[in-house]
Nucleic acid binder design. Structure first.
Length: 870
RNA sequence: GGGAGCAUAGCUCAGUUGGUUUAGAGCAUCUCGUUUACACCGAGAGGGUCCGCGGUUCGAGCCCGUGUGCUCCCA
């Protein structure tokens, strides 16, 4: 069979993915094997695959495929999140394009559009995950608004309400003026913005023309001012405390109060207090019993509290009012000022602090056990540094605002009567049943939906119907899940809350390990974003390089716990690795028909096989340890080196028969077996090409995907050391050839001067092949007119037809000598230090003494070689 | 303002309880090479006052203090 020049991924990927699905390899049912459960962080139902998903899901797939090979019963559950704000925003935008305003639709009409849209576009992302090779159990695909999931969310709301952990209250919330909804603190992104600081003077209610000047970045909110506050010890203002001033333009009279919250140095030292529009002012207002005047509508425009600007957007008003204040003589000055402004994560609108009646979860009690589980390492965080972040947040936890003024989501199960009484039940019928006094009354349901995360926090439980069908066989088998792989950005949104829900509703942690991936950034370290246009098209990259290469590229550049600087060159490296694997296959296939059973296995081939076996076992152990500790990138690097360097560059060259010569059948079979082991080791990282080659090597009884790992063999350390020696000799002699400009084609004669010839005899054929030597001989005395090379205590004389560059040789030897002498000196100094000899452990001293002996021997060898050069 | 983390080769990173040859890998760079697996390749080389300063120790990339720079989280 003639193989194509290079590996062509496209067809192979489609073929194997379909085959794996057809065989049902990814579908899990409870059995007597240990479960390895992973629930996907559900992407937004409207989402498309980006680099972050690629990293995150590649990692999950590696863990899941590895578990499958380890004989566990892996179950990786796919699904999507209804993502209320993001999805509703997309549907609104879609409707607007069709000329339909959301406000013209009833709730039911809007939701039918939303569902239609979800059915059409939702889940594209799940298709894309197949392209990457993810071994998800598609029969378990879940959605946070599936009927039983929906009921569960409602049930949890009612339960927490009845336990007194959910309440309704008027609080300052973050208001998204574009989406017209409340946001949780976590949904607000603070950015530095270049703004202005306006100094505005307020006329005092005193005889004469006296003023007090305040500094603010938000002059448009002056209509909501209900006090001016100064520091009680600020000598500039003490005489004014208790007096009054007038708000410019509307001339409303407000008190001047004192509070040590004020920073004397900041601005003018006098603060305008606007309780309706600033969280700190609100608290100050509460403390001092100030009035709250809301000056804005829910879309961010001014209301009738700001009579001259009604209906104008607050940002626009900021510019206009500056001019108007100037005209009225109240504007003292404007300075440039950089401040932090909150933006909505979803709509990027500037968030307005707003006083509003919302639903809240009391977090204090929920947080305590969830904190403990992580601090005690019952749940392991990888990397552990995130424990600090988690603790800090949990210890300062604030109540969770869970109502959103949206239609797409789980509608809050609360009904109100005309008197404003609240009845919380799953349906109107149940309200009537539980509260007979409501029968016959006009009740209306809360119009709001719940925060998306109020459903996501039940994900590891409800994908197995753990709430809607408690104690079913699946939840009992799969829960707690094994590993959660997610971004550190959602540690509070999601991870912390899942732990709380797990404790509250299952009495158990939801997962044992949490692996936090890095954030994917571009080469310059910038976050990937639509606006920067630095987010590559993932499917395009898969087409270009192949899914395996993309997986390789993203994993090799992804150190545990660090951000990943995405650079297409690592994908190239992945593609090159594909080629390497492909070419090694070609070589083996070329040898296949040349097998021979005649005679014993050559001694050098035996050595090569023993050595690679030892190397393979040693590396398998290493990789095992790395994967256990989630050092995936390191594991991949190690496997990469094992295949490319040890197997291809060394092993295959060592056993390679001469031109058109036969290969011993036993050696061939062993080489195929080694290669298959390597493919298996690599499979979780690069599933497609490994499965393909696995089947090319020979007729297989089993797919690689489900092949269990064989126990790891014993590591023969002495063979390993012999291999290191051989490699060193080869490299050293090749270097000498290079430095002396001996052409690769010119064969040389090698004479070895060693006290241990036996060590070289088994490997001399390999040595000859690798350094292109006609002969390898042993000697007790220097060989004239040769190139001398020293390695440890042994000397090698290379005889060639080429002229010898004795000058160059000498330079190198002298350099080496200087290095060795310097080293010897440092060792001797250490050994001469009495305190060292007294305090250091005996092993350490022994090592130092060996270092000294080795260095002395080496110096002697070099000096002899130099003497011979004359 | 509060908290956390990071600083090792041009780049991205390893470096496990302080001692395992005066620091390792991959990529990039340079030199040589088209010898039937592979130029998406092979062989080889160069490249680092381990951020500065101070301390503990017989001994510090690793521990302590301090300074500087960067990143993230919270307000």
């Amino acid at each position: 069979m003639e193989l194509s020049k290079n590996f062509i991924p496209g067809e192979v990927e489609t073929k194997w993915y379909q085959h794996w699905i057809d065989q049902g390899y990814f579908h899990s049912v409870p059995n007597d094997k240990p479960a390895y459960t992973v629930v996907i962080p559900p992407p937004n139902v409207t989402g498309v695959l980006h680099m972050g998903h690629c990293l995150n899901n590649t990692i999950q797939d590696i863990l899941v495929r590895r578990a499958r090979m380890q004989g566990m019963n892996p179950c990786w559950v796919p699904g999507t999140d209804h993502a209320s704000i993001a999805t509703e925003a997309k549907v609104v935008a879609m409707l607007r394009e069709r000329g339909i305003a959301k406000s013209s639709l009833s709730r039911e009409e809007f939701l039918s559009y939303a569902w239609e849209w979800k059915e059409k576009y939702g889940g594209i992302i799940l298709q894309q995950l197949r392209k990457m090779g993810c071994s998800l159990d598609w029969e378990r695909t879940s959605f946070t608004m599936d009927p039983d999931y929906y009921e569960t969310v409602i049930k949890v709301f009612i339960d927490l309400y009845k336990k007194g952990k959910i309440y309704r209250g008027k609080r300052m919330i973050n208001w998204d003026v574009k989406a017209k909804t409340a946001l949780s603190d976590e949904e607000v992104i603070h950015k530095e913005v270049n703004g202005k600081m306006y100094h505005i003077r307020y006329k005092l209610d005193l005889p004469g023309e006296e003023f007090i000047t305040i500094a603010t970045v938000r002059p448009e909110t002056i209509f909501g001012d209900t006090a001016i506050c100064v520091h009680p010890k600020d000598p500039r203002y003490t005489h004014l405390v208790g007096k009054h001033a007038f708000v410019p333009m509307i001339n409303r009279r407000i008190p001047i109060i004192a509070d040590d919250y004020i920073e004397i140095e900041f601005g003018t030292g006098a603060l305008k207090v606007t309780p309706a529009h600033d969280i700190n002012d609100f608290q100050l207002g509460q403390k001092h019993g100030l009035e709250v005047i809301d000056t804005m509508n829910d879309d961010g425009t001014m209301n009738d509290a700001a009579p001259m600007y009604i209906g104008k957007d607050r940002i626009e008003v900021r510019k206009i009012i500056a001019k108007d204040l100037e005209a009225s003589g109240n504007l003292v000055k404007i300075e440039d000022y950089v401040n932090q402004v909150g933006f909505s994560e979803r709509t990027d609108a500037i968030v307005e602090p707003r006083l509003s009646l919302q639903w809240w979860v009391d977090m204090k009690q929920l947080a305590a056990p969830a904190l403990e589980k992580v601090m005690s390492d019952e749940i392991h965080f990888h990397p552990a540094k995130f424990k600090n972040v988690y603790r800090h947040w949990m210890e300062n936890i604030k109540d969770w605002c869970i109502s959103r003024q949206l239609w797409w989501g789980h509608r809050i199960p609360a009904w109100y009567d005309q008197e404003g009484n609240v009845y919380v039940e799953a349906s109107l019928e149940k309200v009537h049943a539980s509260f007979p006094e409501t029968v016959g009354k006009a009740l209306y349901q809360d119009a709001d939906c719940l925060d998306t995360w109020f459903s996501s926090w039940l994900w590891p439980i409800e994908v197995f119907k753990g709430m809607s069908n408690p104690n079913n066989a699946e939840i009992n088998y799969y829960y707690p899940t094994s590993t959660l792989v997610t971004a550190p950005e959602i540690i509070f949104f999601w991870v912390a809350r899942m732990i709380m829900a797990g404790e509250e509703y299952m009495g158990k942690i939801p997962f044992k390990d949490v692996y936090f991936t890095g954030i994917v950034r571009d080469k310059q370290g910038r976050k990937m974003s639509k606006s920067l246009g630095n987010s590559p098209d993932l499917l395009g990259l898969i087409d270009q390089y192949g899914a395996d290469a993309v997986r390789f590229g993203i994993m090799i550049a992804s150190p545990a716990g660090n951000d990943l600087l995405f650079d297409e060159s690592t994908l190239e490296q992945g593609r090159n690795f594909n080629s390497k694997l492909w070419n090694a296959t070609k070589l083996l296939k070329m040898w296949e028909p040349r097998q021979s059973n005649e005679g014993p296995i050559p001694e050098d081939a035996t050595f090569a096989m023993d050595w690679f076996q030892a190397k393979l076992s040693a590396t398998q152990l290493e990789v095992d340890e790395m994967l256990k500790t989630f050092r995936l990138s390191e594991a991949l690097k190690t496997i990469y080196g094992l295949i490319w360097d040890d197997y291809c560059s060394w092993y295959l060259e060592w056993i390679k028969p001469g031109f058109e010569q036969p290969i011993h059948a036993k050696v061939f079979e062993k080489s195929i077996a080694f290669y298959d082991d390597l493919l298996q080791l690599l499979h979780p990282f690069m599933p497609f090409i490994t499965e393909e080659i696995h089947h090319m090597l020979k007729t297989q009884t089993q797919d690689l995907c489900v092949q269990e790992l064989a126990p790891i063999g014993k590591v023969d350390e002495s063979v390993l050391h012999a291999g290191v020696l051989l490699k060193n000799v080869i490299s050293t002699l090749r270097d000498a050839r290079n430095k002396n400009q001996i052409k690769p084609k010119d064969a040389i004669d090698v004479h070895i001067q060693s006290e241990n010839n036996a060590a070289y005899q088994t490997i001399q054929n390999i040595l000859a092949k690798q350094v292109n030597a006609k002969t390898v001989a042993y000697t007790n005395a220097p060989i004239g007119s040769s190139i001398v090379v020293a390695l440890e205590k042994d000397k090698f004389y290379l005889v060639s037809d080429q002229a010898i560059d004795t000058v160059g040789l000498k330079v190198n030897l002298l350099k080496d000598l200087a290095h060795q002498k310097g080293f010897l000196e440092s060792v001797e100094k250490k050994l001469a230090n009495e305190k060292f000899v007294q305090n250091a452990k005996p092993e350490v001293i022994a090592i130092e003494q060996k270092k000294k002996a080795d260095a002395l021997a080496r110096i002697q060898t070099i000096e002899e070689s130099l003497a011979q050069l004359g």
